[in-house]
Design a protein around this nucleic acid. Structure first.
Length: 202
DNA sequence: GCCACCGGTGGC
DNA sequence: GCCACCGGTGGC
């Protein structure tokens, strides 16, 4: 019944403000116009590198000669998605919620079903699918609860990591693309955010 | 040690 | 009373 644009109607909202992907050639950021497009690129980013040319699909004249669409400064909280996250099935929504700074986790991923039910884990997802025969065609391999990684590792409270050895010097090493989230809450963190800037070599 | 999962609860 | 958010922890 009240399926009415349900999704996106009220409570369901996304922490992500802008979707951006880095050009594999010139390393400039290109804004991705829609979440759907972003998810499509993200799924195949390993097989198909993103280039400024790719953005011509929605920006006919853009090229590596144009400056970056967005500066990677501290006006946003940056996070890198992992590659190979499947596109969200039609009728569903994949929602990312960034947690408060200084907590034990960075973000939560959840899926909203076509009938507006919020699911928090693979367990809940498969149970829900089993209990709803009309969703039998839905394969759980189309879902991933893997959250992105913050570029600023200090955003999360330090664990018993100690010694901070170089082991994790490059956060999200394999990930090619990133998303931005709004960094409201605090005033000007400023401190070290800019240092976390993309090591993005090789 | 990490993280997927879920219970508790504070704020609405 | 509900639910968004967070922390604890069991299983790997």
């Amino acid at each position: 019944m009240e399926q009415e644009q349900a999704i996106g109607a009220k409570r369901v909202w996304e922490s992500v403000k802008l979707y951006t992907v880095k050009c594999a050639k010139c390393s400039k950021w290109r804004l991705i116009p829609t979440k759907e497009k972003y998810e499509e690129i993200r799924e195949r980013i390993v097989e198909r590198s993103f280039l400024c040319d790719t953005a011509r699909a929605w920006r006919p004249n853009v090229s590596c000669n144009d400056e970056s669409d967005v500066k990677q400064d501290d006006s946003f909280l940056w996070a890198m998605d992992r590659p190979r996250i499947p596109q969200t099935p039609p009728g569903w929504q994949r929602i990312l919620r960034i947690r408060a700074e200084g907590g034990t986790k960075f973000a939560d991923v959840y899926y909203v079903t076509p009938s507006n039910k919020r699911l928090r884990s693979m367990v809940e997802l498969s149970r829900y699918i089993n209990e709803h025969p009309h969703l039998k065609g839905v394969n759980i391999s189309q879902f991933s609860f893997q959250p992105p990684v913050p570029l600023d590792e200090k955003y999360i409270a330090k664990r018993a990591r100690s010694t901070t050895h170089d082991t994790s010097s490059t956060p999200a090493a394999g990930a090619y693309h990133a998303l931005q989230t709004q960094n409201d809450s605090s005033g000007v963190p400023e401190s070290a955010t800019t240092e976390a800037k993309a090591p993005a070599q090789s």
